[in-house]
Nucleic acid binder design. Sequence first.
DNA 1: GCAATCTGATATAACGTTATACCTGATGTC
DNA 2: GACATCAGGTATAACGTTATATCAGATTGC
Lengths: 344, 344
Amino acid sequence: MAEKPKLETVAKKAGVSIATASQVMRGTGRISDKTRTKVLEIARILNYVPDGRAASMRSGESREIGFTIHQIANPFNAEVISGVSDLLETEGYLVSVLDSQDDPKRQRNQLETFIRGSRGGLLWVPARNTPLSTLELLRTHRTPTVSFLRRGDTSEFDHVGIKNFEATQTATRHLLALEHKKIAFLGGIADVEVRNQRIAGYRSALEEHGLNHPVIWECPDNKLSGMKAMAGLKEAHPEVTSVVCNGDMIAIGACLALVRMGLKPGKDVSVIGFDDIQDAAVSAPPLTTMAVSPYNLGQQLAQVLLERIREPERPVSSHEVSAKLVVRETTGIAKPSRGKLPKN
Amino acid sequence: MAEKPKLETVAKKAGVSIATASQVMRGTGRISDKTRTKVLEIARILNYVPDGRAASMRSGESREIGFTIHQIANPFNAEVISGVSDLLETEGYLVSVLDSQDDPKRQRNQLETFIRGSRGGLLWVPARNTPLSTLELLRTHRTPTVSFLRRGDTSEFDHVGIKNFEATQTATRHLLALEHKKIAFLGGIADVEVRNQRIAGYRSALEEHGLNHPVIWECPDNKLSGMKAMAGLKEAHPEVTSVVCNGDMIAIGACLALVRMGLKPGKDVSVIGFDDIQDAAVSAPPLTTMAVSPYNLGQQLAQVLLERIREPERPVSSHEVSAKLVVRETTGIAKPSRGKLPKN
DNA sequence: GCAATCTGATATAACGTTATACCTGATGTC
DNA sequence: GACATCAGGTATAACGTTATATCAGATTGC
């Protein structure tokens, strides 16, 4: 029935000026208790909600945060999003999440929308092959921005990420300690910096043991792709006895594929994941993985953004968290090298 | 370096009035090719992005859509979100997704933020126990709104949902046809209308066969909970030979639990899921389920919202899609009723 | 008793767009 | 050549807030 109420409606009904009503709503200025309660009462009855566009335009502030990420439908990212949202919501902010599907065009579009709406802060996982013009865009509009996981070819933003090199080095060393000689790296797509760092860590551990023939296999980050990739990898490289994966989804998929081939993960072939998503522990068999605690990572990301918002001129900061090896049941001592060939 | 550019900056640099620059940006009015290209060129160089707050305030339009959902980190919902976003993005809209975690307070907060920002449209899965005041809020602000999955105790909004009663009826009949007599319903939390409808369908099929002792077991919608719940259910009701689940995640968890108990899904105990998420087909064993194609459902949801936006006065519509039984390997003929008891 | 102070409230100019109405000079019509 | 038409462009008032300055009375100080 009623038209959408504005401050003027409230003020008129309460018999005060718009200015007074505004002060009451924001809790500023000197207002008598009597008028205050009166105005609040009216506002409540009318379901008054201030127009954030007008407020933000005038005050230059916004409590909406934008977050573009490459894939929402991914348990690791989903947990990160929870961490980010929970922390920022308790601070009175609200996070809207967009899925760029790792497409730089789409991401550009989303960032422009955020800028158009003048969000109070931006979080992003730079899409693969993000062009310089997108960085330029962000630079021009100087919204507090923190990059996550990937730096996107620049160091001008605050950053929260993972010590990728160290992590895959640790993972690979774990397999080497179990006497594996033929270790493959499975997962990720070319040109993503995270993957390159991880491959470098993997290579470096191999080289420590004089192994100079890395086997590297691409694969998108989901279970089904992991299954297919593992099947392909095992066919092309039957000698491989263990696999360092670029993510738990891939690792879980890989284990499923091994089972289908009649091979036992952790006995015939060792598999190590990355992330430690919730499913990792309840997978069959439970997955050995490099744990990074996505929820906490999200909280840290949110924290860095808050600090940037509160102190815009502080020097750029960068935080890289370590992954921790969690040994479960998919890694085990290597079989003698004349191990079985895959059979269908 | 440069300040955030506004239309005035662009206009000044191009030597035209603000009005002209605005027309060019929006492609309206009569503008010569010469000035048009000139203005566009300047805008590009300056990285000009119009301020959506100002634009939307003046024009009364917004191409941002808000979507509150009870759980982002859920494959079914994630696929729905993809469907929604893909369709709306091709129509020039942008969808920001918020996770209410099924908490009505949180959802209220999120809806208020959407209203504050005057989104062009709203999608929501009413949180469990959503109070009337929230409906009132939505009503007052008359943003085009479509409810999804749950109606939230009202029929004043357009709605897209699932034929829940029919689906679980079909699922239960499938198990009955396989000669199961002890069929349990597993999953969901009390007070959610979707679950009640599904339980009703399940009951109705049982009653067709004169079975009047339903076994109903609560459980949140994730794999780990599904595991635990299945274990508890089997302990409390060892006679149960088959389970209709309230979601695939639960069903997959239930299968894992069965395997751990030494029981074979589809042979010792039949399990039927709901949703047909991508994992259902690659689970071990592949899951029999009631398929609803979340991606398409999302697209349909988006479509209904678009129609409402374009024609605000059209009568309220309601769409309920059917779920389709997909038989894979977790359902099979019932074992003779003196089947094994669970053993640890 | 008059200035100084304080309390509670208000008028008003922004914020950056867009829609409307209007203007100017050139071209066309008969 | 007088008038209508049109192309191309501009001035200006909104949109709903908030920040700043200001105001009218009441109270205080001495």
